[in-house]
């Protein structure tokens, strides 16, 4: 359960988020849509405490996100996995070390055999071959890097999975694959997912619920079916666009 209450954030006089409130029940797959630069990524970063709100609060599970409380913050971060818009792989180490980084850093798995099994399991989950584990990120294509970054996030088995523009820069086939992956994860593992995107096609295919942001406010909140028939102007424009 993620609860966001009256969250506001401005950057140099520009009000990006204006008293936004919503909650995500456990096991739900929520898509947050909006035009570029509307503050979707900022919203995600508030959930894991990479941004500090001007006012309002974010509650993950039963804990309030508070940037100054390092203990609580690290507990929350342990429950969350965020897939960044760009792969954000550590380019000085191999794919294997990238994926196992979180496991080691958090001390989740000590046994190197277990770590190896976990890494291979997550690689096959995102549809990648084991042969790339010894490669460095710079040797991989962008789409592959992105999958590795998803595998890295999944490796620590988070309760909450957050995606920032997951399909940006991916070809249509990879996009479909990723959508199916998100669907599978929410269905099988009962993970709570928040996806920030402007990819309406994926949203309609995958989401349990869609939220539409405009000028720092929520202008639509409902199921994909309702989204198709809504009279909200921006939602209609979004659907015309594809």
């Amino acid at each position: 359960m993620i609860v966001i209450e009256k969250l506001s954030k401005s950057f140099t006089n520009l009000k990006v988020l204006n008293e936004i409130s919503f909650s995500v029940p456990s096991g739900e797959c929520l898509f947050v849509l909006g035009k570029s630069g509307v503050g979707k990524s900022v919203l995600l970063k508030h959930i894991v405490g990479l941004e500090t709100p001007d006012s309002g609060s974010v509650i993950v599970g039963n804990k309030k996100v508070d940037v100054s409380d390092i203990v609580i913050l690290s507990q929350i971060r342990k429950q969350c996995g965020l897939v960044f818009q760009f792969p954000a792989l550590l380019d000085s180490v191999t794919v294997f070390e990238n994926i196992s980084f979180g496991l080691r850093a958090r001390g989740l798995l000590k046994n190197s055999k277990e770590i190896e099994i976990r890494v291979k399991e997550k690689l096959s989950l995102v549809g990648l071959d084991e042969s790339i584990v010894e490669k460095y990120p710079s040797q991989l294509s962008y789409g592959t890097q992105k999958r590795v970054s998803i595998a890295r996030t999944l490796a620590v088995e988070p309760e909450y999975l957050l995606f920032d523009e997951p399909t940006t820069g991916m070809d249509p086939i990879a996009t479909t694959g990723l959508n199916q992956l998100i669907k599978k994860l929410t269905a099988q593992l009962k993970i709570t997912t928040v996806v920030v995107s402007h990819d309406i096609k994926s949203a309609l295919a995958v989401a349990d619920r869609i939220i539409l942001l405009e000028n720092g406010k929520i202008v639509f909140d409902g199921t994909p079916e309702k989204f198709k028939s809504t009279t909200v102007k921006l939602a209609q424009e979004f659907q015309m666009g594809f």
Partner: peptide, 9 residues
């Protein structure tokens, strides 16, 4: 990459 490290704990 730095944020990724933070999030991975």
């Amino acid at each position: 990459q730095l944020n990724a490290i933070r999030l991975l704990g």
